[in-house]
Amino acid sequence: MDATTAPPASRGSSTRNELKRAARRLFAERGIAAVGMREVVEVAGQRNAAAVHYHFGSKDDLLRELLIDGADLIDAERRALFDELELRGEPTLSQVVRAMVLPNVAFHGPTGEHETYFRFIVNVQNERRALFRDTVPEHSDGFRRFVAHVHRLLAPVPAATINQRILFASLALQTLVAAREASIDRTESGDHHFWSRPDALSGMLDAVEAILLGSGASAR
């Protein structure tokens, strides 16, 4: 076996998970280009300097796996929420926004995805936009359903205008969730004096819905 090739059974190993947790935190806190693979190995407490290459291959392969891990967790919850809503009929805009937002603030994962994932993806988008664009859409069925519902609910607003609002709302949500994540991550208890309050979540929902509606618009 090539030294840079991960064995099939290693995906869920404790070493692999520690490397992923360490890498995602370093990427989240310092950016993508500033972090070397040797540093990931050291922070993860591993002795083998080639551990990242052994378990993941290249740095880009590691970035893709970290992106997919979080995207799949969030998408699974979104799809479940949309499944439930659609069984009851055509959801309202408020319900659609809630199904979009809640998985971003309520997900957890086996390698601490909730601790650093959104700051990590912000840095990937800023530094490695093409890699992000080529990786995440295949794992975003829940987001595509969100987009379809928003177009249905905001018709007859022009499609280009709706797409612009979706982009702005998505960027605003990502910024809010990353700020929330960073603040909660700095606490020892995981309970933040502002971001853990129910009205903070309500405010996020209202902000996303307001951007989608635009000035003077209404939704069915």
Rank of each mutant, 00 (worst) to 15 (best):
P91W: 05
R88H: 14
I32L: 09
D69W: 09
T92P: 01
T92Q: 05
G89E: 02
A44N: 03
A76G: 15
A49G: 11
G57Y: 11
L63G: 08
E42Q: 12
V43N: 03
K59M: 04
L67R: 07
E86N: 08
E84P: 00
A33Y: 10
G89K: 03
V41E: 07
E65V: 07
R38Q: 10
V41D: 04
V35R: 01
H53G: 15
G45C: 02
K59A: 08
R78H: 13
A80H: 11
T92A: 12
T92C: 04
L67G: 06
I68Y: 10
L66D: 08
L81K: 11
A33K: 11
Q46F: 10
N48T: 13
L81D: 12
L66F: 11
L87M: 11
D61A: 14
R88D: 12
E39Y: 07
E39T: 08
L62V: 09
L81S: 13
E65P: 00
E86C: 06
E77D: 15
E84Q: 14
L87S: 14
L73E: 14
F56W: 12
H55S: 06
R47Q: 15
G70N: 03
R79N: 14
G70T: 03
A34S: 13
V40K: 03
I32H: 12
R30H: 12
V41L: 00
R47E: 15
V52A: 05
I74M: 13
L67T: 05
D72I: 01
A51C: 01
R88I: 03
F56V: 05
G45K: 00
V43F: 06
F56D: 05
V35K: 01
G36I: 01
G57L: 01
I74C: 10
S94T: 13
D60M: 04
G57R: 01
R79I: 15
I74W: 07
T92R: 06
G31E: 02
A80S: 13
V35L: 00
D72A: 12
F82W: 09
G70W: 03
D83T: 11
D60E: 15
V35E: 00
A34Y: 05
L66R: 07
A51N: 03
K59S: 06
G89S: 05
L67V: 04
G57S: 04
A49Q: 15
T92V: 02
A33Q: 11
E39Q: 09
V35A: 02
V40M: 01
R88G: 12
E42T: 13
E86T: 10
D83E: 08
E65S: 10
E84Y: 03
M37E: 12
L73Q: 14
L63N: 08
F56Q: 04
L85E: 10
R30W: 04
E42P: 00
I32V: 12
E42S: 11
A71D: 02
R30Y: 09
A33W: 08
V41S: 02
R38C: 04
S94M: 03
D83F: 02
A44V: 00
I32G: 08
E90P: 04
D60R: 10
G36N: 05
L62T: 09
R47F: 14
L73T: 14
G57P: 00
L93M: 07
E77W: 07
P91G: 08
V43C: 02
